[in-house]
Structures are given as C-alpha cells and as structure tokens.
C-alpha cells in the first residue's frame, strides 16, 4: 500500500473527527505502528483543528463557570493536604503487560491491598455520612414543624393580647360608663357588661357569663328609654368585647335571646340580663 496515498485519502480526518467506521479505525491503528508518518499526519490535523477552533471562540455565559465549580465542589482534592500525592479514592491500577519482577509484584500487591482498604474505608464512611445526613435531615424537618407551630401559637397569642389591650383601653377611658347587667330572677348566674362612651355614644358589650346561644338564636341588646325598648344591636360571635350600635340615650340596658338577625321588639320571656345606667 502506498502510505502517502493512504494518508491523503481523507482517512486521517475521518479518524480524528470520529467519522471512521470500526474497520477503518482498526486498519489505521494497525498501520500507525509501522508508519510514523501516519501519526505525524494525525498530529498535524489535530493541531490545525485546535487552531481553527481557537480562532472562533465564543464567550460562554458568565455564570456557567460558577455553576460548574459549585456542582463539582465536593469532588476537588486539595493537593496541598496530600503529602504523597495519593488520592482519596481507590485508584484503578492498570497492570503492565510485560512480566513483572518479583519485587515490583510485591509492591503491586501492597498497592492493590491498600486500594481495597481505602475503598472499604471510603464505602464505610459513605454509609456513615449518609446515615448522619438522614438523621440531620429528619431533625431539620422536626425543628421546622415545631417552629411553624410556635409561630402560629405566637400569632394567636398576639391577637388575644391585642383584644385585651383594646378592652383595657376601653374600660379605663374616663368617658366610659360601665353598666353591669346581672342575671334576672331564675338566671342569676348570668352576667354581661355594657361600656357606654358618654361622648361618642359608642356601645360595647362584654359577655362575661352568658350561655352559648342555641342554633338559630342570637342575643340582642336593648336600651330602655323611659320604659321603651330601642334596639341596640346583635351580639355576634366576637371574642371579648363586641362593638354594638351607637345609642344616644338609655336608662337601662338589657339582653334578650331572639331569633337570628334580631327582632323589632324584645321577647321579654327570654330576658337574660339587665342593668341600670347609674347617672
């Protein structure tokens, strides 16, 4: 075979670019041993390919390198911490094909033994660290749940605290008249308090002790002016102090149990509590 013709047949380029088929590759690799000019042609084409690629570089996205370094950060081995250039992981040792002298065979045995030991240690450490990691992960989840629960509790407590502060402010206002409404005969255990601002005429009710209103029923506050009842609003499911209707005048405040939404006039058989405004 004429080697020069062979080299200029395009086989070199086909081989380097990975386009040659298995048969062509085998043929070339066999010829390469006997003809150094084939290797020279390969080297030359590789060099010109590299030069061409470097003449056409495209700058990658700025964050690509950071992403890579981050992704591989656990795989780098700090060379300065390894005194005898031995890597942490067990290395694959390629056995030379030449007969190995006895002394060096012994050496290989040591190296092989050492790499097996290193591998076992590394595998054990993997298992150990994986367990540690799983345990730590569970703890984090538990702590997060606890944190969320505490956060919710805290919110509830803050809301309660706000109500209490509001109530306190209301009760300590000097313009506010406090009317204690006590349970009438037969309902002595009940108690509710009206806070009536004599300036703004705002009315607030604190249901200290009232049984829970039955389904479809609601408590209604009445202001009695010269014996005539005036609707003063419904007690909704408010926590603590409920704000009711502005009331201009009242001699007596009373609460009756009415149908949901209230009645135009009180059902006096359902009178629960009543209190006189002290003038």
């Amino acid at each position: 075979m004429n080697i020069e013709e062979y080299i200029s047949s395009g086989i070199i380029e086909s081989y380097v670019l990975g386009l040659a088929d298995a048969q062509e590759v085998a043929e070339l690799e066999q010829l390469k041993g006997a003809h150094p000019e084939i290797q020279a042609a390969i080297d030359s084409f590789e060099a010109s390919l590299e030069t061409a690629a470097f003449a056409n570089t495209i700058t990658p996205a700025a964050d690509t390198k950071d992403k890579l370094m981050l992704a591989l950060q656990d795989e780098f081995v700090d060379q300065t911490n390894i005194p005898n250039q031995q890597t942490k992981e067990a290395k694959v040792v390629t056995m030379p094909l030449k007969p190995i002298p006895a002394k060096s065979a012994k050496m290989f045995q040591y190296i092989a033994a050492a790499s097996i030991i290193l591998f076992v240690v590394s595998a054990t450490l993997n298992v150990y660290f994986f367990r540690e990691y799983t345990a730590a992960n569970k703890q984090v989840v538990a702590l997060l749940n606890e944190k969320n629960a505490l956060f919710t509790d805290n919110n509830n407590i803050q809301a309660k605290y706000q109500e209490i502060t509001n109530s306190l402010q209301l009760m300590s206002d000097t313009n506010v008249i406090k009317v204690a409404m006590k349970g009438i005969a037969g309902k002595e255990g009940n108690l509710a308090t009206v806070f009536w601002n004599s300036k703004s005429k705002d009315v607030y009710v604190l249901a200290n002790k009232l049984p829970k209103a039955p389904e479809g029923k609601q408590y209604q506050l009445w202001a009695l002016v010269k014996g005539k009842p005036i609707d003063a609003g419904m007690l909704n499911d408010c926590n603590g102090v409920c704000k009711l209707k502005n009331t201009q005048q009242a001699d007596i405040f009373a609460i009756t149990l009415e149908k949901k939404g209230g009645s135009p006039s009180p059902d006096l058989t359902q009178l629960y509590v009543l209190g006189k405004v002290s003038s």
Partner: peptide
C-alpha cells in the same frame, strides 16, 4: 470553554 462552545454552537 470558548473554543468548545464554538464547537457546540
């Protein structure tokens, strides 16, 4: 990276 990106591109 620049040369390889041109190959990829």
């Amino acid at each position: 990276s620049g040369a390889l990106l041109s190959v990829i591109h």
